[in-house]
Write a protein that binds this DNA or RNA. Structure first.
Length: 415
DNA sequence: TCTGGGGTCCTAGGACCC
DNA sequence: TCTGGGGTCCTAGGACCC
């Protein structure tokens, strides 16, 4: 058995690159993409990064820079990004089927089971994705996933596009210049704790005492340390079905009355039900939360759960229970920012056992018909009255680009 | 005025059992 | 002053990721 060799392929500035695909006039121009509700900056082109627009900052804080430098601004367009992502992943899988899709814009691949020379294969992947989809990617190669992440970072920074770490001890010069928070799995809190121990760079962490790290950062920290030294602790993960499904969005504006909250929670319950059925799952528990903004003057946040006698995937049941819980959570006198639904205790539908004494109210054929109509004619063509018609509470996305690849009415036009 | 959404994993602590 | 030990299961909360 050969030693593992992982590649991490990561799309450069993915959302920003997607926006440019169908709009060549944006090339070279600074561009940012906003989170849902146009709240925060979640993606930036290189030009926007160079202007000093930070990742994750609230949009209003970036507004001055945006106006002064004519930065192009987009609301997130997940239909577009999801479709482009599928195309990128298909190209990668065509060259190396041993793949784990890690996020919308990243995939881990194992190159050691293929006969090809790894660096040459990585360059081929990069060229082919660029050529076939228009999306630029970078690839890091290394004996562990954690090191492959770092190699990818170096590949991006160097502009090479591909970089391999063969033996971490041979590049201590590079690792000594990288702050420890760049390591996959080391977030803000862990970085602070490490700093208190005098560990500031990746190289210092790599050479740290495993017992000390375990004491302060638990097994996760110890595993990271191991991986940094070239001993793999993580392999590609099988795609497994979700453990929970969460549907939630901020309201377009703060909400003070119960009615729009009930409409919104019904929508999220229906959405969650669709996702549940698409994965052929049922849920045993539903959890509803309601909250004001963290930064609001009067803060309130609460949640309630309820179980089903028999696990279900029927939207009508999900909506009924979700509304009941939301009603109990609601208190007068607050300005609410968000409501959400989480489905838990997920199990495969075909394994559900009926309860002898509780008749089931599910109607799978009705749900199938509902999903089929919406799949064919467009989402939300048929919906429950509880979801509301006008939906004034809906989130804002004032800068959304057309869904070029997933909606007939929004195809790109060439004149 | 305006601060995302969707996930996973680990740990600590309480309830309960023998 | 002293008041068992060992185990399981569940949940809440923290931390992290993109």
């Amino acid at each position: 058995m050969t030693a593992p060799l992982f590649a991490l392929a990561d799309c450069n500035n993915f959302y920003a690159s997607c926006e440019r695909l169908f709009n060549p006039a944006l090339a070279g121009r600074p561009l940012i993409v906003l989170s849902n509700n146009d709240g925060c900056v979640v993606a930036r082109s290189n030009e926007a990064k160079a202007l000093g627009i930070g990742m994750g900052i609230p949009f209003f804080q970036a507004r001055k820079l945006v106006e002064r430098h004519r930065v192009a601004v987009f609301s997130s367009n997940y239909s577009l990004y999801g479709d482009i992502s599928r195309r990128v992943m298909a190209v990668l899988a065509g060259l190396c089927p041993d793949m784990e899709i890690y996020s919308i814009d990243e995939a881990f691949l194992r190159l050691d089971r293929l006969p090809h020379e790894p660096l040459a294969l990585a360059r081929e992947m990069r060229d082919r994705v660029r050529h076939w989809t228009g999306i630029p990617i970078s690839i890091g190669l290394a004996p562990t996933k954690t090191l492959a992440k770092l190699a990818n970072l170096i590949a991006k920074k160097s502009g090479e596009g591909v970089f391999q770490i063969e033996r971490p001890e041979r590049l201590h010069g590079l690792l000594a210049r990288l702050p420890v928070k760049e390591v996959w799995g080391i977030g803000r809190r862990s970085a602070e704790r490490l700093q208190a121990l005098g560990i500031e760079t990746v190289e210092q962490l790599r050479r740290a005492d495993p017992r000390q790290i375990r004491r302060h950062l638990s097994v996760i920290g110890e595993r990271i340390l191991c991986e940094l030294n070239g001993t793999p602790c993580l392999d590609l993960e099988e795609t497994q079905s979700n453990r929970q499904i969460l549907c939630s969005k901020s309201f377009g504006q703060r909400v003070t009355t119960l009615a729009p909250i009930l409409e919104a929670v019904s929508n999220y319950a229906a959405r969650a039900g669709e996702r549940l059925r698409r994965q052929r799952l049922c849920c045993g528990h539903i959890h509803v939360f309601l909250q004001t903004g963290h930064h609001d003057a009067r803060v309130y946040s609460n949640a309630l759960s309820q179980g089903f006698p028999t696990p279900t995937s029927d939207s009508r049941q999900l909506i009924r229970v979700a509304k009941g819980l939301a009603q109990r959570l609601f208190l007068e006198g607050y300005r609410y920012q968000k409501v959400g639904v989480i489905l838990m205790d997920l199990a495969e539908s075909r394994r559900i056992q009926d309860d002898l004494f509780t008749p089931r109210n599910d109607n799978p054929r009705l749900m199938q018909a509902l999903d089929a109509i919406n799949a064919r004619l467009g989402a939300d063509e048929v919906f429950f009255a509880a979801q509301g018609v006008q939906r004034p509470w809906r989130m804002q996305s004032g800068y959304r680009s057309p869904r070029y690849t997933t909606c007939w009415n929004e195809l790109a036009r060439v004149s």
